[in-house]
Design a binder for these strands. Structure first.
Lengths: 234, 234
DNA sequence: GTGAATATAATTGTATACAATTATAAATTA
DNA sequence: TAATTTATAATTGTATACAATTATATTCAC
């Protein structure tokens, strides 16, 4: 609705990136969907040059897969890769939140509470895509507070991958992060309690991972894997 | 020498990336050097399309800085950012090496020793650029053993940034990582000793950081910073 | 001669044209 | 009809042309 005006101006690379990413989070773009360059050019009214830059950035964030000579598709990380992503996040964020607990100032608390509130609103008003995005913003804000910029950039990539994983594996598209976790995290950080902050963060990420349907082999299109147990029984 | 033949074939994007990166490690390209697209086109005999992809990848690895409308320059991370890079590496690699100590197999030891040996050879035969590259390969190989692919990709980016930092701040271009550290690391991992491996890795990275000339404000072109203490005395 | 304003050149950003590759449809043969 | 081959169309990869921007040189006033 607010984009009608943009019809005249040319949309920027960053804006197109966000639009595609949002479409993935909202499950309007499903995994393995092909992203034909020409179609995206027509949709957004820009040349292939711009679209290709967007696709390259999305592929760096592992949200789309770029197959040489065969175009781009929405990525479909398997259960094992999702587990690895969460393991990586635990490693990074245990450290980040501990640092954030030390460097945190009162003005940070306000911003964190604001994000957590909006996240809850979206979760309860049928906007799971926005809720996922805000959950990611919350974790990135913690990295901002911790103040290590290279580390923040790495986390940004992991958050993007996690967001895709959630929209893939979360049951019924429901927001999955328990909002109370975020509130309890804010309290622990405000207390400057490194150990408790770490513990909550670690458990929070593990809980998120557990809530995903990673046992079932959904999203696996490889027939060999699908029928592996059947054939083993023969 | 081996590239004379490639004069006819077109060099690939990945090869050009490596050539530019190597030039940086060998200090044939110094920080703040401008990378004019047309010049690179002439040098490598490809169109700007390819060069721009290479520059985009290098900028993602924070090895070159991409300034809108003003072209690309070799990045010049300041002392503070270098410290953050090392802090991030300690966080990631403490976890990686602990995992590697568990999953390691005999065939891995051979590969690690091979890399450590070649690294030492390069360090002592006046090839600091190659030594830096091999040191990075050593750490990435540990990530391979640990077996977390998303985490390995993040470390790859940090290793690239570290390599640039070393070539910038290492005294006299000397190889800086004490090779004994790598050997001791191999031994600890071979023993499956998680705690010791972590400890050696952590201390190793801290030692690397300390050996850099991060106190002096060399490489800082900001006049405000340069004359900050002088003006404060007035 | 110095500094501002302007003109010129060089460089980057975007769109498009063409080549190479892959996917799809039609035709041929068993 | 089913499978294989061939022809056609669609798509991606690369190079280049043009537009927009920035950098450099020149001119002019003081």
């Amino acid at each position: 609705m607010r984009q009608k005006l943009n019809r005249l101006k040319k949309p920027s690379e960053a804006w197109i990136y966000d639009q595609v990413f949002s479409a993935i989070l909202d499950q309007r773009l499903m995994p393995d969907t092909k992203l034909t360059e020409k179609d995206l050019c027509d949709v957004f009214g820009v040349s292939r040059t711009i679209i290709r830059k967007v696709l390259l950035r999305l592929s760096i964030d592992r949200v789309v897969e770029l197959r040489p000579n065969r175009g781009a598709v929405i990525a479909a990380p398997g259960p094992e890769e999702v587990r690895e992503i969460f393991e990586a996040r635990r490693l990074l964020e245990d450290g980040i939140v501990a640092e954030a607990a030390e460097k945190y100032g009162p003005e940070d608390a306000q911003a964190l509470k604001e994000i957590a509130l909006r996240e809850r609103e979206c979760a309860y008003s049928g906007k799971p895509g926005d809720a996922i995005r805000l959950s990611g913003d919350f974790h990135l804000r913690l990295a901002d507070i911790a103040g290590n910029r290279p580390l923040r950039e790495l986390l940004r990539q992991l958050v993007a991958q996690t967001s895709l994983a959630i929209s893939l594996y979360a049951p019924g598209g429901v927001s999955m992060c328990d909002d109370d976790d975020h509130d309890r995290l804010i309290a622990a950080i405000a207390d400057g309690n490194r150990g408790l902050s770490r513990q909550i963060m670690h458990e929070h990420l593990s809980e998120c991972e557990r809530s995903l349907l990673l046992q079932t082999e959904q999203g696996c299109n490889d027939l060999h894997t699908v029928f592996a147990d059947v054939m083993a029984a023969e």
